[in-house]
Write a protein that binds this DNA or RNA. Structure first.
Length: 838
RNA sequence: GCCGGGAUGGCGAAAGCGGUAGACGCAUGAGACUUAAAAUCUUGUGGGGGCAACCCCGUGCGGGUUCGAGUCCCGCUCCCGGCACCA
């Protein structure tokens, strides 16, 4: 094996061969020894916080997808550093959660042993890949010194009235006797045993993220995220504008059920309030549907229908949450016997219950307009309910039959005094008309639900609440944090459906912090998404025991300059993180309310056209590739596969090309001469390359940046010439973000003037200066078209005028033979083309 | 069903605003070096026709706008990702 650095035969013989393994080991060690990647967070100039989504440390080790994400992020960090920023690129481990817990259960190793082992393996792999990570700020969410502050965060939300407890449904497998996450329910059955899943009601903690729905939506207008991510968030928040409309309860004998209706209704006497986005269609509302669990159902149901209603409610309650929400199934429901009054028509309409109406959305009740809504149409058809047309498209009349629901635009019909109005206008007019009569109010609704953070599991931070018979729920005093997760030999969820922590009496029995009487800890733990909703705040201040995040460091380093991560987190993680940041901002703890000013999602790596999976056996193990090709080659190859934001197709056959490129660079740099002058043509290409690589790297166009460097390499070597040092040195700087070890080694060798003296890291060598004058071409190739068809090419001086270009074009016999007479018209695009319309 | 993103050579891909389609790389043909092979270097390679210079066709499909369309507009097909009865 070649020894790096000193092996160059200074007598002028063959330079040392490129040996990535020794070079990479050398530089990884050097970076560690010299703290190259640990910036001075207190004093560093022009701070740049380059953040990547931290990994879950799985037992399988670093996944190629992780490495793809981190490499792209690292390149950006290194690039910004070369541009003169002090770059902070931290990493940590998102090690709590059901994923780790299930894995630990499967292999029978306790997560408290498993996780540190996995983390150790991840560290090794991450170091080997040459990331510019500041290891001095590493964190793990499972560390009590971290989750102490996760619990503190819960208390802050609790103080602000943003954490509350309510009964909510969970998926329950009656055979395994355990709570299941939604993703463990496959087609309505338990993924492990196939038993149909039921729903159970448990008391759970929620965060009021819905209070922030409007702000979470509005801020999307100005933060610098890709449109697709913003759209995903907008859809998730799901703003709908419409009206809440009161349907009076008529013939049921219960009168207007004022006291039993939802208390927040904006309408004084709401009867049965419904939410609709189409108040314009109210004249076609021929029946109402309540969610089966709607509180009004009991009051409204008539005695003769009670039995059927009860049976239906029981049946839906048994259904699991997942399959109830999956559409495309037969509509079911029963009549309650009650009649309500349509406030627009004054007609009585029957009140039904059906599971296609969801209690969590709107008022849990709808007015059904079967003529203009697919689901209502299906239901009305199944149960023989009347279908009335109230919107007519051009060419249709009030009597045109409806073979299917019509959702398009049109004019109102069968709508009394509103007949003839365009539907959009009718929406405003009818809402105003109903509002005047106290039967409606404009209302905005969001799809977003409050965030359920309770998990009836073991592997998470215990929720810091103590229940006291006398005082009720009491928050754990801040000075008692962390509430440490105890070691539980058996942490398997059991048939009680409550957390395994409820089996450890000596842990959960504690005195009430308020009155001192014997009380009981909350035994649920919190959602992993809470751990990851604030980790970026902790990084700069990691190690501080007295505060979650230091005010000065936070002001200096946050918000994050650029966040890069996977699209799978485009919705939940990013939304929760934004929410938590807003809450802390409102509490006066943060000077900003958006955590990530710039976010981009990287694409996915597939292999030979197919998704990687263990069952297919086509998973790429990064270790093998790094060992065989070197980290620099592997990194550069990953980025060369395709556009970073779109992902790419990993093929073993493609790596060699990247390796060849690095080998050529190695040889050209070590052979470069100081004698003579650099070639002006090469220098021009160099400056064009400097511009392209800089621009492309800045916008994550890594694949084309690499292609541009390869192109320059080809120009550099054309005609087997020996490159001038001034031609090669800037290329070493350009390649440094991509192949950092190679760049360091070459930089050092190129600057080995004084024996023994160490050259500064290439990271601190800056980014080559782009000179437009040197990049300018003095002649251009003009394309000549006749009627838009390419006929010839001309080489003309760069500033050639239209007249000159036209004359030259017509003089060209290749062109002339397609132009019979004088041209009708000539289009000239300076520097690009002449098009003659003959 | 809805929302996003795609479809370009044998393959991965590239083409700021509509202006040379296929940069860069893989694979592959030929050649140089070599006793030979590997490595390296040179060179060809979208399809069809022609001895040639050249000509015709070509960016999923069908229309359109334009001097000019991979790019814009209308209507489809298929693939990938996400959401899923949200009134």
């Amino acid at each position: 094996m070649t020894i790096p650095s000193t092996s160059r035969d200074r007598a002028g013989g063959e330079p040392a061969a490129y040996d990535p393994s020794s070079i990479e080991r050398k530089w990884q060690l050097r970076w560690q020894e010299e703290g190259t990647n640990s910036p001075d967070l207190e004093r560093g100039e022009r701070p740049w916080y380059q953040l990547m989504m931290f990994p879950y440390p799985s037992a399988e080790g670093l996944h190629i997808g992780n490495l793809y994400a981190f490499t792209g992020n690292d390149i950006q960090g290194r690039f910004r550093r070369q541009l003169g920023h002090t770059v902070f690129e931290p990493i940590g481990f998102d090690a709590f959660g059901i994923h780790s817990e299930n894995f630990a259960l499967r292999i029978g190793v306790h997560p408290m042993e498993l996780i540190p082992r996995n983390i150790e393996n991840f560290r090794r792999q991450l170091r080997a890949s040459g990331l510019m990570v500041d290891w001095s700020h590493e964190l793990s969410t499972t560390d009590p010194s971290y989750y102490k502050w996760t619990q503190w965060l819960f208390l802050k939300l609790y103080e602000q009235g943003l954490a509350y407890k309510k009964g909510a449904a969970v998926n329950w497998c009656p055979s395994c006797k355990t709570v299941l996450a939604n993703e463990q329910v496959i087609a309505g059955a338990c993924e492990r045993c196939g038993t149909p899943v039921e729903q159970r009601f448990l008391d759970q903690w929620f965060f009021r993220i819905t209070d922030y729905a409007a702000r979470l939506l509005d801020n999307l207008d100005w933060i610098d995220w890709s449109d697709s991510t913003k759209t995903a968030q907008r859809n998730w928040i799901g703003k709908s504008e419409g009206a809440e409309v009161a349907f009076g309860i008529g013939d049921s004998g219960l009168g207007m059920a004022g006291e039993s209706s939802p208390p927040q209704s904006p309408i004084p006497n709401p009867g049965i309030p419904v939410f609709t986005t189409r108040p314009d269609t109210i004249f076609g509302a021929t029946y109402l549907v309540l969610a089966p669990e709607h509180p009004l159902v009991e009051r409204v149901t008539t005695p003769e229908h009670r039995q059927a209603v009860e049976a239906y409610r029981e049946r839906t309650a048994k259904q699991d949450l997942v399959s109830r929400k999956i559409g495309e199934k037969e509509k079911t429901g029963v009549f309650t016997g009650a009649m309500a009054v349509n406030p627009a028509t004054g007609e009585p309409v029957p009140v039904w219950i059906a599971d296609y109406v969801l209690m969590e959305y709107g008022t849990g009740a709808i007015m059904a307009v079967p003529g203009h809504d697919t689901r209502d149409f299906e239901f009305a058809t199944a149960f023989g309910l009347p279908i009335v047309r109230v919107v007519a498209a051009d060419g249709e009349t009030a009597d045109t039959p409806l073979g299917e629901p019509y959702m398009g635009d049109g004019r109102l019909v069968n709508s009394g005094r509103f007949d003839g109005l365009p539907a959009a206008e009718g929406k405003r007019a009818i809402t105003a008309w109903l509002a005047e009569r106290g039967a409606a109010a404009p209302r905005v609704n969001f799809r977003l639900h409050d965030w359920c953070i309770s998990r009836q599991r073991y592997w998470g931070p215990p929720i810091p609440i103590i229940y006291c018979d006398a005082c009720g729920p009491v928050p754990v005093p801040e000075e008692d944090l962390p509430v440490e997760l105890p070691y539980l030999e058996d942490f398997r969820p059991d048939d009680t459906g409550i957390s395994p922590l409820a089996r450890k009496e000596d842990w959960y029995r504690v005195p009430c912090p308020r009155c001192g009487a014997m009380a009981r800890r909350e035994t649920d733990v919190s959602d992993t998404f809470l751990d990851s909703a604030w980790y970026f705040l902790r990084y700069p201040s990691s190690g501080r025991g007295d505060v979650p995040f230091d005010a000065g460091l936070t002001k200096r380093w946050l918000p994050v300059d650029w966040y890069i991560g996977g699209n799978e987190h485009a919705v939940l993680h990013l939304l929760y993180t934004r929410f938590i940041t807003m809450v802390l901002h409102d509490a006066g703890l943060l000077p900003f309310e958006e955590p990530f000013e710039k976010f981009r999602a990287h694409g996915m790596i597939i292999r030979e056209g197919a998704k990687m999976s263990k069952t297919k056996g086509n998973v790429v193990n990064p270790d093998e590739y790094v060992a065989q090709w070197g980290a620099d080659t592997f990194r550069t190859y990953l980025m060369f596969l395709g556009p970073y934001e779109e992902g790419g197709d990993f093929r073993d056959s493609g790596i060699s090309g990247v390796r060849r490129f690095l080998e050529r660079l190695w040889r050209s740099a070590l052979d470069a001469t100081n004698r003579g002058e650099p070639d002006p043509g090469v220098v021009r290409k160099l400056h064009q390359t400097i511009r392209k690589v800089g621009e492309d790297t800045a916008r994550l166009g890594y694949n084309t940046a690499i292609a541009a460097m390869m192109e320059y390499m080809n120009a550099l070597r054309a005609g087997e010439r020996t490159a001038h040092r001034a031609e090669v040195e800037p290329l070493v700087q350009l390649v440094a973000p991509y192949a950092p070890h190679l760049a360091e080694e070459l930089w050092e060798r190129l600057h080995e003037s004084a024996p023994g003296a160490r050259a500064a890291s290439v990271l601190d060598a800056g980014w080559p200066e782009f000179d437009p004058a040197l990049a300018a071409e003095d002649s251009v190739e003009l394309v000549v078209q006749v009627n838009g068809k390419l006929r010839s090419r001309l080489r003309l001086p760069a500033g050639a005028s239209q007249a000159e270009a036209e004359r030259a074009a017509l003089a060209d016999p290749q062109v002339a033979k397609f132009v019979p007479g004088p041209p009708k018209k000539v289009i000239f695009v300076p520097g690009r083309l002449v098009n003659i319309v003959a």
